[in-house]
Amino acid sequence: MISVNENVTKYVDTLLDREEEYGIKSYYLENKATVIDCGVSMPGSIGAGILFAEISLGGLGKVSVVPGIIDSYYINFAQVYMDQPAIACLGSQKPGWKLKTEGFSGTAYGPARALSQKPKAIYTAIDYSDDSEVAVINIEAQAMPGVKEMDYIAKQCSTDPECMVALVARPNSIVGSVVNGTRAVEWAMNRLLQLGYDVKNVSSASGACPIAPLKKDDMQFIGASFDGISYYGLAYLYVKARDDRFRDATSQTSKSYGRGFLALLKESQGDYSKVDPTLFAPARIMVNGLQDGSLEAYGKLDPAMLLGSYGLKS
Protein backbone atom coordinates (compact mmCIF):
# COMPACT_ATOMS: atom_id res chain seq x y z
CA MET A 1 0.00 0.00 0.00
CA ILE A 2 1.15 3.53 -0.74
CA SER A 3 2.35 5.41 2.36
CA VAL A 4 2.24 9.16 1.77
CA ASN A 5 4.16 9.76 4.98
CA GLU A 6 7.02 7.40 4.18
CA ASN A 7 7.07 8.77 0.63
CA VAL A 8 8.10 12.24 1.77
CA THR A 9 10.91 11.52 4.23
CA LYS A 10 13.53 12.09 1.51
CA TYR A 11 12.06 15.54 0.80
CA VAL A 12 12.19 16.41 4.50
CA ASP A 13 15.83 15.30 4.62
CA THR A 14 16.63 17.59 1.67
CA LEU A 15 15.08 20.57 3.47
CA LEU A 16 17.03 19.81 6.66
CA ASP A 17 20.29 19.41 4.73
CA ARG A 18 19.90 22.76 2.91
CA GLU A 19 18.35 25.08 5.49
CA GLU A 20 20.59 28.08 4.82
CA GLU A 21 20.18 27.81 1.05
CA TYR A 22 16.39 27.56 1.30
CA GLY A 23 15.98 30.33 3.88
CA ILE A 24 14.37 28.06 6.48
CA LYS A 25 15.20 26.92 10.02
CA SER A 26 14.43 23.73 11.95
CA TYR A 27 13.84 23.33 15.69
CA TYR A 28 13.97 20.25 17.89
CA LEU A 29 11.34 20.56 20.60
CA GLU A 30 11.46 19.20 24.16
CA ASN A 31 9.11 16.36 23.19
CA LYS A 32 11.58 15.46 20.39
CA ALA A 33 9.26 16.61 17.60
CA THR A 34 10.84 18.49 14.68
CA VAL A 35 9.32 21.73 13.41
CA ILE A 36 10.62 23.61 10.37
CA ASP A 37 9.98 27.32 9.87
CA CYS A 38 9.52 27.65 6.12
CA GLY A 39 7.89 31.06 6.11
CA VAL A 40 6.75 32.27 9.53
CA SER A 41 9.77 34.18 10.83
CA MET A 42 12.09 32.92 8.11
CA PRO A 43 11.87 34.25 4.53
CA GLY A 44 11.68 30.84 2.84
CA SER A 45 12.32 30.54 -0.90
CA ILE A 46 10.96 29.20 -4.17
CA GLY A 47 13.03 26.04 -3.71
CA ALA A 48 11.56 25.49 -0.25
CA GLY A 49 8.09 26.15 -1.66
CA ILE A 50 8.51 23.45 -4.30
CA LEU A 51 9.57 20.86 -1.70
CA PHE A 52 6.86 22.01 0.72
CA ALA A 53 4.27 21.52 -2.03
CA GLU A 54 5.62 18.11 -3.08
CA ILE A 55 5.47 17.01 0.56
CA SER A 56 1.87 18.26 0.79
CA LEU A 57 1.06 15.96 -2.15
CA GLY A 58 2.39 12.96 -0.26
CA GLY A 59 5.32 12.58 -2.63
CA LEU A 60 2.90 11.61 -5.42
CA GLY A 61 3.34 14.80 -7.44
CA LYS A 62 6.10 16.87 -8.99
CA VAL A 63 6.11 20.67 -8.87
CA SER A 64 8.00 23.26 -10.87
CA VAL A 65 7.86 27.05 -11.18
CA VAL A 66 7.68 28.19 -14.79
CA PRO A 67 7.32 31.58 -16.53
CA GLY A 68 4.04 32.75 -17.98
CA ILE A 69 2.95 35.87 -19.86
CA ILE A 70 -0.50 37.38 -19.28
CA ASP A 71 -1.22 40.56 -21.25
CA SER A 72 2.55 41.35 -21.44
CA TYR A 73 3.07 40.78 -17.68
CA TYR A 74 5.60 38.19 -16.56
CA ILE A 75 3.78 35.97 -14.05
CA ASN A 76 5.24 33.00 -12.20
CA PHE A 77 3.18 29.83 -12.64
CA ALA A 78 3.19 26.70 -10.51
CA GLN A 79 3.06 23.59 -12.65
CA VAL A 80 2.22 20.23 -11.11
CA TYR A 81 1.62 16.69 -12.30
CA MET A 82 0.65 13.66 -10.29
CA ASP A 83 -0.47 10.08 -10.39
CA GLN A 84 -2.99 8.81 -7.83
CA PRO A 85 -4.60 12.28 -7.64
CA ALA A 86 -7.39 11.16 -5.29
CA ILE A 87 -4.79 10.24 -2.66
CA ALA A 88 -2.38 13.06 -3.50
CA CYS A 89 -4.97 15.85 -3.48
CA LEU A 90 -7.84 14.73 -1.26
CA GLY A 91 -5.95 12.32 0.96
CA SER A 92 -3.03 14.65 1.57
CA GLN A 93 -2.93 18.14 0.03
CA LYS A 94 -6.45 19.33 0.90
CA PRO A 95 -6.39 21.68 3.93
CA GLY A 96 -8.99 19.68 5.81
CA TRP A 97 -7.84 19.83 9.45
CA LYS A 98 -8.34 22.90 11.64
CA LEU A 99 -5.89 23.17 14.53
CA LYS A 100 -6.79 25.33 17.50
CA THR A 101 -5.28 25.38 20.98
CA GLU A 102 -4.91 28.19 23.48
CA GLY A 103 -2.65 30.74 21.77
CA PHE A 104 -2.37 28.85 18.46
CA SER A 105 -4.52 28.57 15.36
CA GLY A 106 -3.70 26.99 12.03
CA THR A 107 -4.79 24.73 9.21
CA ALA A 108 -3.14 21.35 8.77
CA TYR A 109 -2.77 19.40 5.57
CA GLY A 110 -0.27 17.01 4.05
CA PRO A 111 0.56 13.35 4.68
CA ALA A 112 -0.23 13.17 8.40
CA ARG A 113 -3.89 13.86 7.64
CA ALA A 114 -4.08 10.32 6.30
CA LEU A 115 -3.04 9.02 9.72
CA SER A 116 -5.57 11.16 11.57
CA GLN A 117 -8.26 10.45 8.92
CA LYS A 118 -9.50 14.05 9.08
CA PRO A 119 -12.11 14.42 7.73
CA LYS A 120 -13.16 10.78 7.83
CA ALA A 121 -15.75 11.11 5.03
CA ILE A 122 -13.05 11.93 2.48
CA TYR A 123 -10.96 8.89 3.34
CA THR A 124 -14.03 6.69 3.15
CA ALA A 125 -14.79 8.11 -0.32
CA ILE A 126 -11.28 7.51 -1.64
CA ASP A 127 -10.80 4.26 0.32
CA TYR A 128 -7.39 5.19 1.71
CA SER A 129 -5.51 5.07 5.00
CA ASP A 130 -1.87 5.15 6.03
CA ASP A 131 -0.30 3.32 8.98
CA SER A 132 3.18 4.87 8.94
CA GLU A 133 4.93 5.47 12.26
CA VAL A 134 6.50 8.62 10.79
CA ALA A 135 4.07 11.53 10.48
CA VAL A 136 4.76 14.64 8.36
CA ILE A 137 2.33 17.54 8.53
CA ASN A 138 2.12 20.83 6.60
CA ILE A 139 0.70 23.70 8.62
CA GLU A 140 -0.54 27.10 7.47
CA ALA A 141 -0.26 29.44 10.45
CA GLN A 142 0.98 32.81 11.66
CA ALA A 143 3.08 31.26 14.45
CA MET A 144 5.09 28.12 15.04
CA PRO A 145 3.48 25.20 16.89
CA GLY A 146 5.02 24.23 20.21
CA VAL A 147 5.16 21.12 22.37
CA LYS A 148 1.44 21.26 23.20
CA GLU A 149 0.39 21.41 19.55
CA MET A 150 2.80 18.71 18.43
CA ASP A 151 1.70 16.42 21.28
CA TYR A 152 -1.89 16.88 20.16
CA ILE A 153 -1.13 16.19 16.47
CA ALA A 154 0.93 13.11 17.37
CA LYS A 155 -1.92 11.74 19.49
CA GLN A 156 -4.42 12.26 16.64
CA CYS A 157 -2.02 10.43 14.31
CA SER A 158 -1.48 7.55 16.77
CA THR A 159 2.26 8.07 16.85
CA ASP A 160 4.91 9.51 19.16
CA PRO A 161 5.97 13.19 19.03
CA GLU A 162 9.54 12.13 18.22
CA CYS A 163 8.18 10.67 14.96
CA MET A 164 6.52 13.97 14.00
CA VAL A 165 7.78 16.59 11.55
CA ALA A 166 5.83 19.80 10.98
CA LEU A 167 6.56 22.22 8.13
CA VAL A 168 5.04 25.63 8.78
CA ALA A 169 4.51 28.73 6.63
CA ARG A 170 2.21 31.73 6.53
CA PRO A 171 -0.04 31.83 3.44
CA ASN A 172 1.33 35.29 2.59
CA SER A 173 4.91 34.07 2.17
CA ILE A 174 7.01 32.80 -0.72
CA VAL A 175 6.41 29.19 0.31
CA GLY A 176 2.70 29.78 0.94
CA SER A 177 2.27 31.42 -2.45
CA VAL A 178 3.95 28.55 -4.32
CA VAL A 179 1.85 25.96 -2.48
CA ASN A 180 -1.41 27.77 -3.22
CA GLY A 181 -0.41 27.87 -6.88
CA THR A 182 -0.41 24.06 -6.96
CA ARG A 183 -4.05 23.67 -5.92
CA ALA A 184 -5.90 23.78 -9.26
CA VAL A 185 -6.12 19.98 -9.49
CA GLU A 186 -7.02 19.73 -5.81
CA TRP A 187 -9.92 22.15 -6.28
CA ALA A 188 -11.10 20.19 -9.32
CA MET A 189 -10.97 16.90 -7.43
CA ASN A 190 -12.75 18.35 -4.40
CA ARG A 191 -15.49 19.86 -6.57
CA LEU A 192 -15.99 16.54 -8.38
CA LEU A 193 -16.28 14.79 -5.03
CA GLN A 194 -18.98 17.29 -4.01
CA LEU A 195 -20.81 16.49 -7.24
CA GLY A 196 -20.90 12.81 -6.37
CA TYR A 197 -18.30 11.72 -8.92
CA ASP A 198 -16.09 8.74 -8.04
CA VAL A 199 -12.75 10.56 -7.93
CA LYS A 200 -10.88 7.25 -7.92
CA ASN A 201 -11.69 7.19 -11.65
CA VAL A 202 -9.13 9.97 -12.19
CA SER A 203 -5.88 8.09 -12.80
CA SER A 204 -3.45 10.96 -13.47
CA ALA A 205 -3.64 14.73 -13.56
CA SER A 206 -1.69 17.89 -14.16
CA GLY A 207 -2.31 21.53 -13.44
CA ALA A 208 -0.97 25.03 -13.92
CA CYS A 209 -1.86 28.20 -12.04
CA PRO A 210 -0.43 31.69 -11.50
CA ILE A 211 1.48 32.19 -8.25
CA ALA A 212 -0.09 35.17 -6.53
CA PRO A 213 2.16 38.09 -5.58
CA LEU A 214 2.71 38.72 -1.87
CA LYS A 215 0.40 41.39 -0.50
CA LYS A 216 0.27 43.95 2.31
CA ASP A 217 -2.07 41.82 4.41
CA ASP A 218 -3.12 38.19 4.52
CA MET A 219 -6.69 38.65 3.32
CA GLN A 220 -5.54 40.56 0.24
CA PHE A 221 -3.12 37.76 -0.53
CA ILE A 222 -5.67 35.00 0.00
CA GLY A 223 -8.13 36.84 -2.26
CA ALA A 224 -5.53 37.17 -5.02
CA SER A 225 -4.35 33.58 -4.59
CA PHE A 226 -7.86 32.12 -4.76
CA ASP A 227 -8.72 34.34 -7.74
CA GLY A 228 -5.70 32.87 -9.50
CA ILE A 229 -7.23 29.40 -9.26
CA SER A 230 -10.83 30.34 -10.01
CA TYR A 231 -10.09 32.68 -12.90
CA TYR A 232 -6.85 31.29 -14.38
CA GLY A 233 -6.19 27.85 -12.87
CA LEU A 234 -6.05 24.92 -15.28
CA ALA A 235 -6.45 21.21 -14.62
CA TYR A 236 -5.98 18.32 -17.06
CA LEU A 237 -7.52 15.04 -15.92
CA TYR A 238 -7.14 11.52 -17.32
CA VAL A 239 -10.35 9.66 -16.46
CA LYS A 240 -12.04 6.37 -17.32
CA ALA A 241 -14.68 8.02 -19.52
CA ARG A 242 -16.52 11.31 -20.02
CA ASP A 243 -19.15 12.28 -17.46
CA ASP A 244 -21.69 15.11 -17.47
CA ARG A 245 -20.66 16.16 -13.97
CA PHE A 246 -17.45 17.65 -15.33
CA ARG A 247 -19.60 20.47 -16.76
CA ASP A 248 -20.25 21.73 -13.22
CA ALA A 249 -16.69 21.36 -11.95
CA THR A 250 -15.36 24.77 -13.05
CA SER A 251 -15.81 28.14 -11.34
CA GLN A 252 -17.83 29.52 -14.26
CA THR A 253 -20.90 27.60 -13.03
CA SER A 254 -20.89 29.43 -9.67
CA LYS A 255 -23.51 32.11 -8.98
CA SER A 256 -20.65 34.15 -7.49
CA TYR A 257 -18.58 33.97 -10.68
CA GLY A 258 -17.25 37.40 -11.67
CA ARG A 259 -16.69 38.53 -8.09
CA GLY A 260 -13.27 38.54 -6.44
CA PHE A 261 -12.56 36.42 -3.39
CA LEU A 262 -11.35 39.42 -1.39
CA ALA A 263 -14.81 41.00 -1.46
CA LEU A 264 -16.48 37.67 -0.71
CA LEU A 265 -14.17 36.95 2.23
CA LYS A 266 -14.75 40.43 3.66
CA GLU A 267 -18.51 39.86 3.47
CA SER A 268 -18.13 36.54 5.29
CA GLN A 269 -15.64 38.02 7.82
CA GLY A 270 -12.98 35.61 6.62
CA ASP A 271 -15.13 32.52 7.07
CA TYR A 272 -14.46 30.33 4.01
CA SER A 273 -17.48 28.15 4.79
CA LYS A 274 -19.81 31.09 4.09
CA VAL A 275 -18.44 31.65 0.58
CA ASP A 276 -20.26 29.87 -2.26
CA PRO A 277 -18.46 26.48 -2.38
CA THR A 278 -18.97 26.16 -6.14
CA LEU A 279 -16.53 29.04 -6.70
CA PHE A 280 -13.75 26.92 -5.21
CA ALA A 281 -13.06 25.34 -8.58
CA PRO A 282 -10.48 25.87 -11.32
CA ALA A 283 -11.19 28.18 -14.24
CA ARG A 284 -10.62 25.57 -16.93
CA ILE A 285 -10.65 21.77 -17.01
CA MET A 286 -9.58 19.45 -19.81
CA VAL A 287 -10.84 15.89 -19.49
CA ASN A 288 -9.35 13.02 -21.49
CA GLY A 289 -11.24 9.69 -21.44
CA LEU A 290 -9.03 6.61 -21.29
CA GLN A 291 -11.75 4.20 -22.44
CA ASP A 292 -13.58 6.27 -25.06
CA GLY A 293 -10.78 8.60 -26.24
CA SER A 294 -12.95 11.64 -25.58
CA LEU A 295 -11.43 15.07 -24.98
CA GLU A 296 -13.67 17.69 -23.42
CA ALA A 297 -12.96 21.27 -22.31
CA TYR A 298 -14.97 23.11 -19.67
CA GLY A 299 -14.86 26.63 -18.21
CA LYS A 300 -12.84 29.62 -19.37
CA LEU A 301 -9.89 31.81 -18.42
CA ASP A 302 -10.48 35.41 -17.32
CA PRO A 303 -7.21 37.38 -17.51
CA ALA A 304 -8.91 40.69 -16.65
CA MET A 305 -10.19 39.34 -13.32
CA LEU A 306 -6.80 37.88 -12.51
CA LEU A 307 -4.82 41.04 -13.28
CA GLY A 308 -7.33 43.20 -11.45
CA SER A 309 -6.95 41.01 -8.38
CA TYR A 310 -3.18 41.40 -8.61
CA GLY A 311 -3.50 45.19 -8.86
CA LEU A 312 -2.33 45.28 -12.48
CA LYS A 313 -3.99 47.04 -15.41
CA SER A 314 -5.25 44.84 -18.23
Rank of each mutant, 00 (worst) to 15 (best):
D131V: 07
R183M: 13
T159H: 02
N31R: 01
L193Y: 10
K155W: 08
Q220E: 15
V287F: 09
A281Y: 10
A88I: 02
S254N: 04
A135D: 05
S206Q: 11
A53F: 06
A33K: 05
D227L: 03
A86Q: 02
G293F: 09
L264Q: 15
T34Q: 11
Y81F: 08
K255I: 09
S64K: 15
V63L: 12
R191M: 12
F104Q: 06
Q117H: 09
A135Y: 01
S268A: 15
A297C: 12
M219P: 00
L312A: 02
L115N: 11
Y11Q: 14
G289R: 06
L262C: 01
E20H: 08
K266S: 13
A166E: 05
I229D: 14
E20V: 09
G110Y: 09
F280D: 09
S225D: 13
T278C: 04
D227Q: 06
M286N: 10
L195M: 11
M164Q: 04
S3E: 08
K94V: 06
I122P: 02
L193D: 08
E133D: 14
S158V: 03
Q84W: 04
E267M: 12
L99S: 01
S173E: 05
Y231E: 07
D130I: 05
N172W: 05
G96Q: 07
Y11M: 11
G181P: 03
E162I: 04
R113I: 12
G260W: 00
S116D: 07
A241E: 15
G228D: 12
R113L: 15
N190S: 15
E30C: 00
Y272A: 13
M164W: 03
R191G: 03
M305V: 05
T250A: 10
M82C: 12
C209H: 06
W97V: 06
G58V: 03
W187S: 10
A169Q: 00
P43F: 01
K300T: 13
K118V: 09
F280S: 11
I153G: 10
S256M: 15
N180Q: 13
E149P: 04
Y123H: 04
K100N: 11
P43H: 04
D227P: 03
L192I: 07
G196R: 13
D271V: 09
I24A: 05
A86S: 13
M150K: 04
S294L: 05
K215N: 04
A281T: 11
P277D: 13
V134D: 12
V275R: 06
L193P: 08
A249W: 10
